[in-house]
C-alpha cells in the first residue's frame, strides 16, 4: 500500500493553496496515509492550516531556525531523511517545489516525475512535454520511492475545514550546510487575488502598449475581482514585474475565467492557460492565434472595449 508524504509550501506563516492541490493528487492514488511535512522556523500556524485539509492523516513538523526561508540545500537533506518509509514524496510544481524536490530525488538516488497532470495508477502518471504540445504517460519503478511535483493547474485544492489531523513534531538528526544563505525577498505585494489560485484572471500583453496603459488592465481586474497576469512580451517590455508572467516559463494557471487582452497568443503563453475554464480574447488583430483557443473572442481596440465592458457590467 502507498504512504505519501506531501511537502507543504508556505510564505509569511501561511500555507499556500498549492499544498492542498498536491494533496488532491496524493488522494487520487487512494493511499493508506497522506502525511504533510511542514519545514519552517515557526510551524504552528502553518501546521494548523495543513491539519484541516481533507484526507490528510498527520501533519509532521520540523521547526528549525535554518528553515525560516526555503533554501533547497537546507531543506532537501531533512526531507530525504523524513521520506523513509514513504512510497511517494509529492510537492507542488511551483518554483518552491521545482527547486527543492529534484535535490531530494537525487539524495534518494531516484528519478523525479515533473508536473504530474493525472494519476493513472500508483506508479503511472501523465505529464506534459514540449511546452504542453505532447502528453506522455510515464511509469515509475515500483521498487523505489516515487518523487513527483504536482502541476497545480491540473488539480483542484482539496477541501479544507472538516478535518483535524494530529500534528507531530519530527526529530530529524541531520547536519545542515551553511554554504547557502537567504538574503531577501522582493515581492510585488498587492491586495489583488493571488494569480495562481484566483478564479478570474485578466491578462495584458504587448498590445497594452506601456506601463502607464497597464493601469486600465488593473482597474478592470479590480472591478470584476480578478487577479492580473501578463504575457512574456509585456514583462520583457517592462510594463509589469515578472511575477505576473503567465506561460511556460512563468506561471501555469487554470482559473474559471481567463481574459487575454492585447495578447497574440504565442505557444509559450497558451501553455500557461490551456486548462482555464473559459478563455476570452480581446485583440484588434482578428488573425491572432489566441482566437484559435478562445471560447469567446472579440476583435477590436482594447482602449475602446474595456471602458465599454465596465459600462455594461
Amino acid at each position: 500500500m502507498s504512504k505519501i508524504l506531501v511537502i507543504a509550501e508556505h510564505l509569511d506563516g501561511k500555507l499556500n493553496s498549492s499544498t492542498a492541490r498536491a494533496v488532491s493528487a496524493a488522494a487520487a492514488i487512494k493511499p493508506e496515509a497522506i502525511d504533510v511535512l511542514v519545514l519552517a522556523d515557526n510551524v504552528s500556524a502553518i501546521a494548523a492550516d495543513a491539519a484541516m485539509i481533507e484526507s490528510v492523516s498527520r501533519v509532521l513538523t520540523i521547526a528549525r531556525a535554518e528553515n525560516a526561508h526555503p533554501l533547497a540545500a537546507v531543506l532537501a537533506p531533512q526531507i530525504a531523511k523524513a521520506a523513509a518509509g514513504y512510497s511517494h514524496v509529492f510537492a507542488p510544481s511551483t518554483t518552491f517545489g521545482k527547486d527543492v524536490l529534484p535535490r531530494v530525488a537525487a539524495l534518494l538516488g531516484v528519478a523525479q516525475v515533473s508536473d504530474v497532470m493525472s494519476v493513472e495508477g500508483a506508479h503511472t502518471f501523465k505529464r506534459p512535454i514540449y511546452a504542453g504540445n505532447a502528453i506522455i504517460t510515464v511509469e515509475a519503478d515500483a521498487n523505489s520511492t516515487v518523487v513527483a511535483t504536482i502541476r497545480t493547474a491540473s488539480w483542484a485544492a482539496a477541501a479544507s475545514g472538516a478535518n483535524s489531523a494530529p500534528v507531530e513534531a519530527l526529530n530529524i538528526d541531520v547536519a545542515l550546510p551553511s554554504h547557502s544563505r537567504f538574503v531577501e525577498l522582493q515581492s510585488g505585494k498587492s491586495d489583488r487575488p493571488d494569480l495562481q489560485s484566483a478564479s478570474k484572471v485578466v491578462s495584458g500583453g504587448r498590445g497594452v502598449g506601456s506601463k502607464e496603459n497597464f493601469e486600465i488592465i488593473f482597474k478592470f481586474a479590480d472591478k470584476i475581482g480578478a487577479a492580473v497576469g501578463a504575457s512574456r512580451a509585456a514583462v520583457d517590455a517592462g510594463y509589469v514585474p515578472s511575477d505576473l508572467q503567465v506561460g511556460q516559463t512563468g506561471k501555469i494557471i487554470a482559473p474559471e475565467l481567463y481574459m487575454a487582452i492585447g495578447i497574440s497568443g504565442a505557444i509559450q503563453h497558451l501553455t500557461g492557460i490551456k486548462d482555464a475554464g473559459t478563455i476570452v480574447a480581446i485583440n484588434k488583430d482578428g488573425e491572432a492565434p489566441i482566437f484559435e483557443i478562445a471560447d469567446i473572442g472579440l476583435v477590436g481596440d482594447l482602449f475602446k472595449i474595456i471602458p465599454e465592458l465596465e459600462q455594461a457590467l
Binding site: L11, L71, T94, T95, F96, D99, H179, S180, R181, F182, V183, E184, L185, Q186, S187, G188, Q196, P241, S242, D243, K251
Partner: peptide, 14 residues
Amino acid sequence: TREVDAGLEVIEAE
C-alpha cells in the same frame, strides 16, 4: 537573484 512565484529572491551561495 532568483525568479520565484512570490517575486524576486536574493540568495548567497559559496
